[in-house]
């Protein structure tokens, strides 16, 4: 079974075994290693990506279920300025400034959850604590991440 997906705006096909978790396909076939493994049980959120505008644990999506899906991973967030400089997504920029990333292993998943929350705050009526509850971070105690998310929300708000 050949599976077609759009990953970070690019078309992509894979012949991976249909049961292979999307996580492994991203990391091994597509060499998008930004998305991380932390547990394989849907609990840690390190593998979080956005699939068809929904937040998912990519370790729990057998790749066959991602057929024709639109996938966004951490690699797709930053942009390049005309002068070649990297422009981070407001969530990434705020994490950088506020110390939201320490060891960095939870970070790609956490950032994707953060990006998704800013797009769809209505899906987490209890706010940040709920929006990020699927993403474990062992380094920060979450405080710096909350601060970063608040700053990112400010940045995204029209002045």
């Amino acid at each position: 079974m050949t599976i077609r997906m759009t990953i970070n705006g690019r078309d992509c096909t894979t012949d991976a075994n249909p049961m292979t978790p999307l996580l492994d396909v991203l990391r091994e076939s597509c060499r998008l290693t930004g998305t991380k493994y932390g547990c394989g049980e849907g609990e840690c959120g390190a593998c979080t990506v956005i699939m068809n505008d929904e937040l998912v644990m990519s370790c729990l999506v057998p790749v066959m279920q991602a057929e024709v899906a639109t996938i966004e991973t951490v690699e797709g967030l930053a942009r390049m300025a005309d002068d070649g400089a990297e422009i981070l997504h407001p969530v990434q920029q705020a994490f950088l400034e506020c110390g939201g990333a320490q060891c960095g292993i939870c970070t790609p998943g956490m950032v994707m959850a953060g990006v998704h929350h800013l797009r769809h705050p209505e899906l987490a009526p209890d706010g940040l604590a709920e929006a990020l509850e699927g993403n474990l971070c062992r380094c920060t105690g979450y405080s710096a991440i909350f601060r970063a998310m608040e700053r990112a929300a400010e940045a995204g708000r029209p002045a």
Partner: peptide
């Protein structure tokens, strides 16, 4: 190394 961690690099 923050930007590298934040972009998955």
């Amino acid at each position: 190394e923050g930007a590298d961690k934040l972009t998955g690099r």
